[in-house]
Design a protein around this nucleic acid. Structure first.
Length: 493
RNA sequence: GGUGCCAUAGCCAAGCGGUAAGGCAGAGGCCUGCAAAGCCUCCAUUCCCCGGUUCGAAUCCGGGUGGCACCUCCA
């Protein structure tokens, strides 16, 4: 089955043919570490982490490059305010980014270029553009002469004429055309600066990605990805730079862009007070729940979170509950498998072997994680059913099917989707503790009442047992009677 | 103004021209001392509206309407 992906440049799904069979080179625009990450950053990180995992699961060997833009005005400004060295500040926030993305199961890139370490490559590329007549020096700045690049606008669908018409009035006079953009900015007093043939300064916003893809992945590579907002101007300008310097047909072969997050229908912004930090969200809702919620949408779609009066996001709690279901299912399967005799190889129940193929179809269709999750839901339901109902099926077939389903769910979830990787007991315990703390439930009190109830039930004093259960219910505790005794969970409502 | 994206049940959400996945909520049932959990059944003749192409359209084309985003170094 061939992989099809939606290419922003062609505006349609196209068959994916990597440069080298079986291998994928991929570059993702990474963070500018000047502040703690919010969950918008997480959406992008999770989306492309899922693409990476899906590619690997589908059998590709992936080289995943994600840059860190540590040379940037906002970093310099923050550092000045804080009285901190800018490299240190960038390091600090980049570390925080990695730590918090890990809460969502986002893996580290294979290669992580930092702009400050690629100045020579950046300067080389600018020089090459100047030599080829594509860029010009003006007062120590260097600008890209956009009009020399005839296909400018092909990614964002805009024409140079449109852009010129829409340009602001306060155009910099040093530019030959209002649509030209800076490759290099001359140093201002007190700002970090690097030495270049045309004077001291620092790179413009877009050139670093062109230079770093060239060094890390070469003249051509397979996939370039980033948030939708980067299509213009960032990625448009990258194309102009790379193709301008290296020739037509160089640079990225497929463009992937992911949607944005909204909160109760509104864009995230500081003034609306709806910027949600990653650490806080992971603490209240569980990091895995955020990932699960996000990958239950297609990566290109915008995602809306309903936010209630308390600033809480019910959608994430629903997702967390769904994870509880999957982990509970796996736990039941584990218990069943470890108690049962090894059934060996052989046939499985109808439908019990379908998951890998269904998931492969889903992920091969532009990384359709929602469809893969739908297949996983079907598998989990069948798994629970087989555990519950021993009748009407041969013992070995049943055992094999349960073992198989649990293994297939785990393989898909952990490797391709980045979820369900924890030990079920560990997940369930930490979730319960989180919810209990949130609702102010005293676990020792719960245990005491459960013990009293167990005694009452032994004595067949059901009135007393039910009264205790009602008390627990009022505390927010749900009692589950199992063959091994009573267990408890925190109620959802 | 220019450009791009989107509109599927009460809600969330897939759907590459072939007769509407999955989840939440809801109803009934199995199981249970009673529950919970789990499982079973039901829950869109229909995909914003109007035309068109086609044997056949949620899917393609044209025109509306309604959202969103980018053109301001915001993921």
């Amino acid at each position: 089955m061939t992989l099809r992906i939606y290419d922003t440049l062609k505006r349609k799904k196209v068959p994916f043919e990597p440069l080298e069979p079986g291998k994928v080179s991929m570059y993702v625009c990474g963070p500018t570490p000047y502040a703690p990450p919010h969950i918008g950053h997480a959406y992008s990180a999770i989306s492309f982490d899922s693409v990476r995992r899906a590619l690997r699961w589908l059998g590709f060997e992936v080289t995943y490059v994600r840059n860190v833009t540590d040379v940037e005005d906002k970093i310099f400004a923050r550092a000045r305010e804080a009285g901190e060295d800018w490299p240190q500040l960038a390091r600090r926030f980049a570390d925080q980014y990695d730590r918090e993305m890990a809460l969502f199961g986002v893996e580290r890139p294979d290669i992580e270029p930092w702009v400050s370490g690629y100045m020579d490559a950046i300067i080389d590329m600018i020089q090459r553009l100047i030599d080829r007549g594509r860029a010009y020096v003006a007062d120590g700045d260097v600008y890209y002469a956009v009009e020399t690049f005839s296909s400018y606008g092909k990614l964002s669908g805009q024409s140079i004429e449109d852009l010129r018409a829409g340009a602001r009035v306060d155009v910099d006079e040093r530019k030959r055309s209002p649509v030209d953009f800076a490759l290099w900015k001359a140093a201002k007093p007190g700002e970090p600066a690097w030495q270049a043939p045309w004077g001291e300064g620092r790179p413009g916003w877009h050139i670093e990605c062109s230079a770093m893809t060239f060094v890390t992945l070469g003249e051509r590579f397979d996939i370039h990805a980033g948030g939708k907002d980067l299509i213009f101007p960032h990625h448009e300008n990258e194309i102009a730079q790379s193709e301008g310097a290296l020739g037509d047909g160089s640079f990225a072969r497929y463009w992937l862009h992911n949607g944005f997050l909204n909160f109760s229908g509104e864009k995230m912004s500081k003034s609306l007070g709806n910027v949600f930090g990653c650490a806080q969200t992971a603490k209240t809702c569980g990091g895995e729940a955020l990932r699960f919620y996000l990958i239950s949408h297609h990566y290109r779609s915008p995602v809306n979170f309903e936010v209630d009066e308390r600033g809480d996001m019910p959608d994430l709690h629903v997702a967390d509950r769904r994870l509880d279901y999957f982990y509970t299912t796996l736990k039941r399967a584990d218990e069943f498998v470890s108690a049962a005799k090894d059934p060996g190889e052989g046939p499985v129940a109808e439908g019990a072997g379908d998951l890998p193929e269904r998931a492969r179809e889903a992920l091969s269709d532009d990384f359709n994680t929602p469809a893969a999750l739908a297949a996983m839901s079907d598998a989990a339901r069948l798994l629970n059913k087989l555990i519950d109902e021993p009748a009407g099926i041969a013992k070995d077939v049943r055992r094999r099917s349960i073992r198989r389903l649990a293994a297939d769910i785990r393989d898909l979830a952990e490797r391709a989707l980045g979820i369900l990787a924890m030990d079920p007991d560990e997940f369930l315990a930490s979730r319960r503790a989180r919810l209990a703390a949130h609702r102010g439930i005293d676990e020792r009190e719960v245990e005491a009442r459960l013990a009293a109830r167990a005694e009452a039930r032994r004595d067949k004093d059901f009135a007393r047992a039910d009264a205790l259960r009602d008390e627990l219910h009022a505390m927010g505790v749900e009692v589950l009677d199992t063959p091994r005794g009573a267990e408890w969970r925190v109620r959802e409502d």
